[in-house]
Design a protein around this nucleic acid. Structure first.
Lengths: 207, 207
DNA sequence: ACCTGAACACCGTTCAAGT
DNA sequence: ACCTGAACACCGTTCAAGT
């Protein structure tokens, strides 16, 4: 990791290095263990330096949450591009990769969804990113409806149901509530597939 | 609210008062605004006093999370008792009331599910409570399967699908992601009902 | 424009000492 | 058994001053 190389640097892209270092500590020590002062010291600057790039600690955390949302947006985009004209498979891949991303980045996910940040009084970047992250799912549902695959109910309710299922499963997993059910990667995959099929076909017996 | 009544008290049930006061501040100022020191001062004791009743701040937060889980367990119990032999209605009430409880107690929910506490290294009470909170749902699914109402898949997958949907919707709501969709209590109710029916019947068109 | 270093007002936690 | 008060090691944030 880049600590001090040849010489102490007095400028550069401290902003991005702060974000990277923050991500690092977040994964290692969790949100509680993350302090701006430690970040600054680790990067060889004074503890006041971060405030030239972030108004406060929250603004740094928001920057990380934005990255998380952008990653989820990518998950949606990839799922669509990889399976053109197959909304069912698109939905499946979106779901499984969503769960996988959250499982592998629990600290970022908790930052995005754990109530630490407020979408009301946050910067415009986070507002934008968090809005956009639902977009891919809506598109999939919409195309699936048009091709007569999905039920003809309002797109929003359908999309939210799918999102809720996937999101809920993800959050339950990183919350540790399902630790028995997802002790291995294979089990997680199996559970995801199982839930996905129940979501598609419903809980009720057909009549 | 109980601050200083007639005389300064030097003993009593400080432990419970700390929990109550913490809940109060949690709702008013959020988790970030909660400090043991302020709690102690508000209750008229020294800042060291809380440490006679809680090993540390985390242990206080765990006590609150336990209360939250117990409340969710009650939600499940009520839903079952109120609609005997009607698993469909039981599931509906459990779901809507779960969403309602989380919506109305977002700080507690974020404490339970937001990654602040670890279910791995927490006290036995929280472990117990968090395990039990899924129980009611399992019972509903099981009885619904036996009466030929729900699909004959493994109970765990069915229960987790239902839980994930309800939990996910709840967390999305308090996360502010659905603020447009749930701006009023009526809208929340409508969305809940809509999602519930999609969950029951599935996304796919029957063939 | 960017960074430093002192300063302020907080924290959590520990521990001898008091009652 | 329960609480106090000093003490320690941290925080976030601000701001004059440096380069």
């Amino acid at each position: 990791m880049p600590k001090t190389l040849n010489k102490p640097y007095h400028h550069g892209n401290l902003k991005n290095e702060l974000i990277d270092a923050a991500l690092d500590i977040l994964k290692k020590k969790g949100l509680v263990g993350l302090s701006l002062r430690e970040l600054a010291i680790n990067l060889g600057v004074s503890h006041g330096a971060p405030y030239r790039h972030f108004k406060n600690k929250t603004e740094l955390l928001e920057a990380i949450a934005v990255i998380g949302h952008q990653n989820l947006i990518q998950v949606g985009n990839k799922a669509r591009q990889k399976n053109p004209a197959d909304p069912k498979q698109q939905l499946f891949e979106l779901g499984l990769n969503y769960i996988q991303y959250v499982s592998r980045n629990p600290e970022i996910a908790n930052l995005m969804f754990g109530g630490v940040l407020s979408l009301e009084n946050c910067g415009p970047e986070l507002k934008q990113a968090s809005n956009d992250s639902i977009g891919g799912l809506f598109a999939i549902i919409e195309s699936g409806k048009q091709s007569g695959l999905f039920v003809n109910k309002d797109t929003q309710s359908l999309a939210l149901t799918a999102l809720a299922t996937v999101h809920g499963l993800s959050m339950l997993i990183i919350g540790g509530i399902l630790k028995d059910q997802v002790s291995s990667d294979a089990k997680l995959q199996a559970l995801g597939k199982s839930v996905y099929e129940i979501m598609l076909n419903g809980l009720l017996i057909k009549r």
